[in-house]
Amino acid sequence: MTASAAAPWGDRFRRSSGILALLLALGVMGGFYAAFAPKSYAEEGSSSSADVTDGQKLFATGCASCHGRNAQGIKDRGPSLVGVGASSVEFQVSSGRMPLARQEAQAQRKPPRYTDEETKQLAAYVQSLGGGPQLPAGNVLRDGDLAQGGRLFRTNCASCHSFSSNGGALSSGKFAPSLEHATDRQIYAAMQSGPQNMPVFGDAQLTPQEKQSIIKFVQSLKAEKDPGGMGIGRTGPVPEGLVIFLIGLVVLLFAAVWIAGKS
């Protein structure tokens, strides 16, 4: 149990140090846990000291220029990362927002610079600095109730991310991003850590089960077909009207001209 509490998220990559740590844990826990060892192994290893060391190396080359040598932050360049937790790192790095391309209104999603493995190492390093929220294991975090997720999404998320989860504008060039490409883990991490201007929805406010309900709702929203045919961005009547006006009207106009021209 101690092993899983220290490292609740999964890792597909086996490392020799991880096996050593596992053997140690088994020795302490006794034979009872032997039956569960293959399962709990997946949740381990990632926060091993080797990961922290590797993460620190990656951090020193890729992140320290803005966040400081010891992640203490540099004024006007990057905030302190002490206490933000592995969850925040995983969100920012796996969605490509960090490392930042340039200083602008807000970091934007782009292809990630680090592999999953490296992201985990960075997360392990930042987690070792001052704790903070961590993600549960697994890539699919949808063990919830769809209808409850919908209610919670509309109460807590829709004001910024819009009813269709397509995002919306904030002040001064900032925006709530579309959730179109967001994975289960990224949505979970965003709620836990409150990246950039997003408010934090801690586990006491939205329980892990409620978070999974919200993710289930968002992912099913994205997977569902648009019942009206073309979604046109799913942003409502304004773009739909614009398409009718610009395309529909022009087509009708040319049809009328064509019919008149034939006579």
């Binding site: 004001s159 910024c160 919306g168 904030l170 002040s171 001064s172 900032k174 709530a176 409150g194 950039q196 201007n197 997003m198 408010p199 934090v200």
Partner: peptide, 21 residues
């Protein structure tokens, strides 16, 4: 309108209808 677009870093509360902050 419900003015509940909260920017927790810049500490602005936004209203989505007419962009009051």
């Amino acid at each position: 309108c419900p003015a509940s677009l909260y920017e927790q870093q810049t500490q602005r509360m936004l209203c989505p209808c007419h962009q009051s902050q």
